[in-house]
């Protein structure tokens, strides 16, 4: 049941901008230059396009959420962004370095938190930080100091000598984030940083990420938790089937892409009951399994009618990012 509204979604790839080449023609000092410039990025695996002419800029200090269903192309975009996957066409620039040509030099100034923890299981917690610092060419006192700072940051000082497999999922994730900060990056890229964590661990990580943004860092995050994206990101790039669907702030997306309120109704006999509701213009109704969703500016009048239906349960709430996400990408299940 895919709702295919022809909303004015900005497809940057279709902007009549002929040159995918990046030219340094921006006025002003170099610091105004976007942290990442992505132009007409394209990538296919076995003839199947996974990233299809995607373009966007990421400005300094932004907290940008890259969202999309499984297989939308998020991870591939991130991998191309850091130079570990080669685009078929299009151009990429990160922190002023053309990628993939100068990816190695660019990565010296970027932190990467991978989707699945790839901490070094042969090393202890503290050794993981030390060895990782050496990969960046950091050594001596500077490294020593930074390792201890990061152990404190990750609240892992008491675990410094522990093996990785003795850590909980939340600890591993905190260590992964700390590790990514060893080179004091200007840009931090996080691929699903809170997947599989308990609420406590998730909130701790959210606080840490917010703090980093306040301190001037640019962040790119992918997540399947819309609540997380809504809380953290000041900009959402939504992709599906490798193409850009939307690129706006979460507030804009919610106010522009979907009705103000949502009413979810479920319970036995919901379909029959639904047939008795006459929908005026401006109210949309969607049936998903045994649940009915109403979307509209004001749905109080339906709520009033529900009060007499004891078999039905409902929730009436402002629309959120998840509603937008489902509206734009549809409710069909995706293969990972």
């Amino acid at each position: 049941m895919k709702s295919s509204q022809n909303v004015s979604v900005s497809k940057v790839g279709e902007i009549p901008e002929p040159a995918p080449q990046i030219q340094d023609d921006r006025p002003g000092p170099q610091t105004d230059r976007p942290v990442a410039i992505v132009r007409a990025l394209q990538k296919s695996y076995a003839g199947k396009p996974v990233v299809d002419r995607v373009s966007f800029d990421i400005r300094k200090g932004e907290f940008c959420g890259l969202l999309g269903p499984n297989g939308a192309g998020k991870t591939t975009i991130l991998r191309m962004l850091v130079g570990n996957s080669m685009p078929d066409s299009g151009s990429l620039e990160v922190l002023g370095y053309p990628v993939p040509r100068e990816a190695r030099r660019m990565r010296a100034r970027v932190g990467i938190v991978p989707q699945s923890d790839n901490l070094d299981p042969d090393l202890s917690v503290i050794e993981n930080l030390f060895v990782y610092g050496r990969y960046f060419g950091i050594a001596g006192n500077v490294l020593e100091m930074r390792v201890h700072e990061l152990l404190t940051f990750a609240s892992l000082t008491d675990w410094a000598g522990s093996r990785i497999n003795q850590l909980s999922g939340g600890m591993m994730r905190r260590l992964s984030i700390a590790r990514a900060l060893i080179n004091k990056p200007e840009l931090l890229i996080l691929d699903e940083p809170t997947t599989g964590l308990d609420p406590q661990a998730r909130h701790t990580i959210w606080q840490q990420l917010r703090r980093m943004q306040r301190e001037g860092m640019t962040l790119i995050l992918t997540t399947h938790y819309m609540e997380e994206a809504e809380r953290l990101c000041d900009r959402i790039i939504l992709i599906d089937n490798g193409a850009l669907l939307a690129d706006r702030s979460p507030e804009q997306l919610i106010s522009e892409e979907i009705e103000a309120h949502v009413l979810e109704v479920h319970g036995s006999g919901v379909s029959e009951w639904c047939g008795t509701v006459e929908l005026p213009i401006g109210v949309r109704c969607e049936k998903v399994g045994e649940t009915v969703f109403f979307y509209g500016e004001n749905l109080h009048w339906i709520v009033d009618r529900l009060d007499g239906e004891s078999r039905l349960r409902y929730s009436y709430r402002p629309a959120n990012l998840e509603d937008v996400f489902l509206k734009l990408t549809g409710r069909d299940l995706r293969d990972a």
Binding site: V82, R104, A108, N118, D122, Y132, Y135
Partner: peptide, 14 residues
Amino acid sequence: TNKTWESILSTSVG
């Protein structure tokens, strides 16, 4: 198995 190289490829090492 351990994806150690993958983690190294996130650093300055090529």
